[in-house]
């Protein structure tokens, strides 16, 4: 831990995956040789069709799945040396469906479950829970029954219950599914604030606009392999379109319109507007 302060943020590898293959017992080859490095403090989006291996990949990061072949290192340590309970202190994974994890009758104990499993107690626990509830905008719902909340707030609750574990790496599986405008804006703010704290964020998403506007790097998967990776400008730029099309993804409108108007790579809405303004002046 002491070394972290001396090394520049963004250089230390948070995740290092080499030659990762995963074959499920019934024979499906869900991952077919994945190499991936994610630096500390990076915000990375993983995109691709259902069944392309995104969820299988992230489940290796906290040891829920073990490689058939290849290696996974988390914060410099091989993941296979650690139990899931120990990896949970390093990698917080938020599942897609909140109803597959909510069990407490009040919001507060639900959020406290993760950190107390990690041995966080007393004032530290209270602080972690308060901070997580504030981050997702549920501070005034701490005493509510989770099942009285609507789906999108239950989803934010499931995110809070992982944020409260204060893991250096946070993985979100489709955090914007079923969310409305405010929910999506909330998730965007959470990712930004995690990244600002120097924590590493990895998200799986089908929403290309959300991906382009929120993440520093995009990893495109197809049939268990990484077929494209780069900044949103590279991943959604015109040269990458054939690869995207091959996996049924469409770049966000800003990127498409920018290319058609000859403005170059404009993955985000602000980049598009700036390029347009520069072109007209």
């Amino acid at each position: 831990m002491s070394g972290a302060a001396t090394r520049p943020i963004g250089r230390e590898p948070a995740i290092r995956v080499r030659g990762l293959v995963h074959v499920f017992p019934e024979g499906t080859r869900a991952l077919d040789g994945v190499d991936l490095d994610i630096a500390t403090g990076e915000a990375v989006a993983i995109v691709g069709q259902n069944g392309s291996g995104k969820s299988t990949l992230v489940r290796h990061l906290n040891g829920l799945l073990r490689p058939t072949e290849g290696t996974v290192e988390v914060l410099g340590e091989p993941a296979d040396r650690l139990r899931v309970a120990a990896l949970a202190a390093r990698v917080g994974l938020v599942f897609q469906d909140p109803d597959r994890q909510i069990f407490a009758r009040r919001v507060r104990p639900e959020v406290a479950f993760g950190p107390s499993n990690l041995g966080i107690r007393g004032k530290d626990l209270d602080a972690a829970v308060d901070e997580a509830l504030a981050a997702v905008g549920l501070s005034d719902q701490a005493g509510a029954n989770p099942y009285d909340l609507g789906y999108s707030r239950r989803k934010l609750l499931s995110i809070a219950s992982v944020l409260a574990m204060r893991t250096p790496i946070v993985v979100l599986d489709e955090p914007t599914t079923g969310q409305d405008l405010r929910g999506i804006a909330r998730v965007q703010a959470i990712v930004a604030s995690l990244a600002a704290d120097g924590r590493t964020v990895i998200a799986i998403s089908h929403d290309m606009r959300f991906v382009a506007e929120t993440f520093g790097r995009v990893v495109v998967m197809r049939a268990g392999r990484v077929v494209l990776e780069g900044t949103p400008a590279a991943a959604f730029g015109e040269p990458a379109w054939p690869v995207l099309t091959s996996t049924y993804l469409e770049p966000p409108l800003a990127a498409r319109a920018g290319a058609r108007l000859g403005l170059g790579a404009t993955p985000t809405e602000s980049a598009f507007v700036e390029a347009l303004a520069a072109g007209r002046s």
Partner: peptide, 29 residues
């Protein structure tokens, strides 16, 4: 009302806010 406008509308609004012609978005879409 808590509803995300379509990308087309958002982008045109941003373009207009910058003092440019929003019709350019339609041209690129």
């Amino acid at each position: 009302w808590g509803v995300e406008p379509p990308s087309r509308v958002r982008l045109a609004r941003l373009v207009q806010a910058r003092g440019l012609d929003p019709a350019l978005v339609e041209a690129g879409a």
